[in-house]
Design a protein around this nucleic acid. Structure first.
Lengths: 335, 335
DNA sequence: ACGAGCTATGTAACTAGTTACATGCTATGC
DNA sequence: GCATAGCATGTAACTAGTTACATAGCTCGT
């Protein structure tokens, strides 16, 4: 019942543990010995202990990923990018979900550190920063996603451009008065609003933390602004709630009000909802690459958003601006 | 730059490593010594190596979860259940996604074994079975989700009941001729069709592996069966494709055709789609509990589905059957 | 036939911790 | 005042591997 160790294999094959290790990891061994060892491995069902390997290597071969909210399609695609690079590199991905709870963020990052992950990719709030910074100082490559943090690698979206993309499209569709729903006043959200404002000065913002607040915010926006002809949602998390509130209020999209939001999702095409998409998969790949091929100086990689035009903003009457470039643009280190 | 070890802490505090270990893990130590040790821990930014701890314990404190397809809401809620139990137990969850690729399933399970996870929860196809069985024999609790495998723990849905639930509701809504879309001929899918057939003999099945095939299958079903008045989708993965194909063909739901599918999802309520829901969160909890509090004999736990009635099947004209019980029903071990 | 040189293997030290056992020290009982 | 108990701490062996170094055994050249 006890698990077979390298010692058991060595005893069964009649060799030393050093020889078994050499057979498994490819050192110089004779064919006859190798055959004996493999027979013993199969006979015992031996599987080498990766933990012990890692302790000797000083570091696990696992990449840690701490996600705020797995239910968001954004993170799903990000993970796919990370997975792809990790698989090509032979690393395992250890995923931790924090459900947007501050204490879990800190706990997950600490746990990843104790697991001696080879690198860490975090998409959390500030709660995780102090520990992540210590890890970075200890030589674990750490990448922050969706936020820029001085002195650490970061992967983010050009949020101002995202807002400008929305403004350009809404203007092209003949809209002039936009209500904006943001999820809290986090920097990324504010930058998106800032970008939208640059293109459309008559922007009315409202903030919501959850679905109920979002519905209320939509109602308030509509009530206080009779000439409102568009609603922009800055957080994919609130898309369903805002869209539901809009249709529930009896308005027709896009005839009465245009609607667009952040991040693509499986139903968007079917529902005809225009969205600003982030190159999420690429962002995940880049994050993992910063872990797999460590870079000394902190890199702040900014990606450009693109617009997936569907029908929820109506017809484009004026020519729209060129589609944005999806390739990453390195803007250099931050400090 | 090198990471602080317990030896470094011991040297700085002027005590032995045994004492440091006792301070950290709560053995008998004097207050003065403990204070010195904690000061050294803070000064060095020491974080204990969980890998080393695990090798001594013979087993990591991590629970491995191998998921076929993270993009499915079913698995998302399952993971939440696992996370909840793991967090309460102080265990980390190590998540691996296989993207429905057979070779990755086997590789992920092998990797989890090498990481000496405390227990394994798999939602994969058969590719992972042989290795999982070996792990179970070696004393690692393994739980298979959504399939029953002789000799191993399994968590599954009463799929026949799910089909019957659909049949009862469709009948109550006055429908008589149902087209069914299944994703391949996997056992779970077939059981659902079997349940549906029991209640509605006039059931026409069609199978699809992906979105394009699903659209084609819907078209074929409609073309060959002019009096078809309902479409049931047996796989949440095909929901969007089937729904899109239905509306694209100009049919109105529920006036021309009723539509229902498996598993709830964020847009279902907004779109008025009736679904059969699995108690996913509870299933995840139960799976994790089988790992955390190991059970000797293989347990086959079957959960009951429930119906979330919305508007996509029309009005209920006859009284529907009672809502199903959501609590788990242990049916005993399989062998 | 004998030493050089090479290959295959074993020995033992090492990774970063835990823990059984031994020991030193103080406090208490008689 | 001395034996004894009990707490705090150190020593060393242990976990499951890896790897530097030593050595055994064989081949080959002369």
């Amino acid at each position: 019942m006890r698990r077979a160790t390298i010692g058991d294999v060595a005893a069964r094959a009649g060799v030393s543990t050093a020889t078994v290790s050499r057979v498994i990891n490819g050192g110089v061994v004779s064919g006859a010995t190798a055959a004996k060892v493999w027979a013993a491995v199969d006979g015992l069902g031996y599987s080498p202990n990766a933990l012990t390997k890692s302790i000797f290597a000083g570091r696990a071969s696992t990449i840690g990923v701490v996600i705020r909210d797995l239910s968001s399609p954004f993170y799903l695609d990000l993970i796919r990018g990370v997975d792809e690079v990790a698989a090509a590199d032979g690393s395992l991905v250890m995923l931790g979900n924090t459900y947007r709870m501050h204490d879990r963020e800190a706990a997950q990052v600490r746990a990843m550190d104790e697991q001696r992950v080879r690198g860490l990719i975090v998409t959390t709030g500030e709660a995780a920063d102090p520990h992540a910074r210590r890890m970075a100082e200890n030589g674990t490559p750490c990448v922050i996603v969706s936020r820029t943090v001085p002195g650490m690698h970061s992967i983010s979206l050009d949020n101002v451009a995202a807002g400008q993309l929305m403004a350009a499209h809404l203007t092209a569709c003949g809209r002039s008065s936009v209500g904006v729903i943001t999820a809290g006043d986090r920097p990324a959200q504010n930058e998106r609003v800032e970008g939208l404002r640059r293109g459309m000065p008559g922007t009315v913002p409202a903030s919501a933390e959850n679905d109920a607040e979002a519905a209320a915010a939509v109602g308030a926006l509509l009530a206080s602004n009779p000439k409102l002809d568009a609603i922009a949602c800055m957080s994919s998390r609130l898309t369903v709630a805002v869209h539901t509130a809009l249709t529930a209020s009896g308005l027709s999209i896009p005839d009465d009000v245009a609607f667009l939001t952040m991040d693509d999702f499986p139903w968007a095409a079917a529902l005809g909802i225009t969205v600003v998409v982030q190159p999420t998969y690429e962002m995940g790949r880049k994050a993992a690459e910063l872990v797999v091929d460590p870079v000394d100086e902190p890199a702040a990689v900014v990606f450009e958003p693109a617009l997936a035009v569907r029908t929820s903003c109506g017809e484009v009457s004026a020519p729209d601006r060129e589609p944005a470039d999806l390739s990453p643009r390195r803007t250099g280190h931050t400090e």
